[in-house]
Computed example of a mutant assay.
Amino acid sequence: MNTAQRLGYDKDEKLLIVNADDFGLCRSVNETVTDLLTEGAIGSATIMMVCPWSSGAAAMLKKVCPDADVGVHWTLTSEWKGYKWGPLCRTRSVSSLAGPDGWFPETSGEAERKADPDEVRQELIAQTEAALKAGIRLSHADSHMGSLYGFHTGNDLLQVAFDVCVVFGLPFRLPRKLMPVGGRRIPNEIMDRAKIRVRQAEDRGIVLPDYVTGPDYDLNEGDTYEAAKAEGMALLRGLLPGVTEWIAHPSRETEELKAFHGQPAKREMEADFWRDGDVRHVLADEGIRLIGWRDLQRLQASLV
């Protein structure tokens, strides 16, 4: 039984959650994500509570769309050279999560190698509680840069994430079935470990999407909006029955974003994509139904 069926839909229904990652990153992202949520162009977002602009994001939500579907974007990395952030936990030492400068490491691989699981647990709790204290009614959780998944070293931190999901009643971004995108091959060891982790999550009552997808994060030299749009529409036409989460990174391309971000133009393309009339026609033609993470959270609550 796929997650769509568990939600009460037919097994052949294609349900799509469009989630905007990195809410709270900067003002440009905050304004764009809030606009897309209020327009109904996307279904949900996840907030980075470690970023200086997270309080601005929470204030925008409260003012414009207080009932928006927003989760916590658990963050253990700080990837840009000119813009940094570090752990929120203040109740105990989390020294394994930060370098001597106090910032998170730049890469997921470094985070995997150094992170102490107990310190990760305390940091995930701190980020979650910060979102709740900011007045956000959290609907789910996911992992910034995939730092909880163990892609680089095999040292995943998913069982720690599951512990926190259970405490706060949050479904989690872990696809029940891995789906290669863009011709990539998924190594067998990752496939095997993912199956084990999916079973462990579901045994604990955590609701998961069937699939996770999205466009390439980077923009290749010479790429245009039309090329990015064609890539996205091909992904939509290839969706399988069940619940798919689409990972989006929308923003306006502003001087603020350009000051630190390596791919600002791609973020604006992603915002334009979900407002594009041709994309809406593809959704209709393919019979794709847009839902939110709150639907999965209600299912999870019913299992308790």
Rank of each mutant, 00 (worst) to 15 (best):
N2M: 05
Q5A: 15
K14T: 08
L16H: 00
L16F: 00
L16T: 00
I17H: 02
V18K: 07
D21K: 01
G24D: 02
V29C: 13
N30G: 07
E31R: 07
E31H: 07
L36V: 08
L36H: 06
L37A: 03
I42A: 04
G43V: 03
G43I: 02
S44F: 02
A45M: 00
M48F: 08
P52L: 10
A59H: 10
A59N: 11
M60E: 15
M60K: 11
V64G: 00
H73E: 05
E79A: 12
K81S: 12
K81E: 15
W85R: 07
L97E: 05
G99S: 07
D101A: 14
G102T: 01
W103C: 14
P105W: 08
T107N: 03
S108A: 15
E110P: 01
E110N: 10
E112V: 10
D118F: 07
D118K: 13
V120A: 11
I125Q: 04
I125P: 00
A134V: 05
S143T: 08
M145C: 05
M145I: 07
G150A: 06
H152Q: 12
T153E: 11
L158R: 10
Q159D: 14
Q159F: 06
F168R: 06
L170K: 03
P180T: 08
P180K: 11
V198F: 01
Q200I: 05
R204A: 12
P209A: 11
P209E: 13
D210L: 04
P215Y: 02
Y217N: 07
Y225N: 11
K229Y: 10
L235D: 01
R237W: 01
R237K: 15
R237A: 12
R237H: 03
L239I: 02
E245V: 13
E245Y: 01
A248Q: 11
E256L: 09
K258Q: 15
G262V: 05
K266N: 12
R267F: 08
E270G: 10
E270A: 11
E270L: 10
F273L: 15
W274D: 01
D276E: 11
R280V: 02
L283S: 02
L283C: 03
E286P: 03
I288C: 01
R289H: 15
L290D: 02
I291L: 05
W293M: 11
W293L: 10
R294N: 14
Q300N: 10
A301I: 09
A301Y: 13
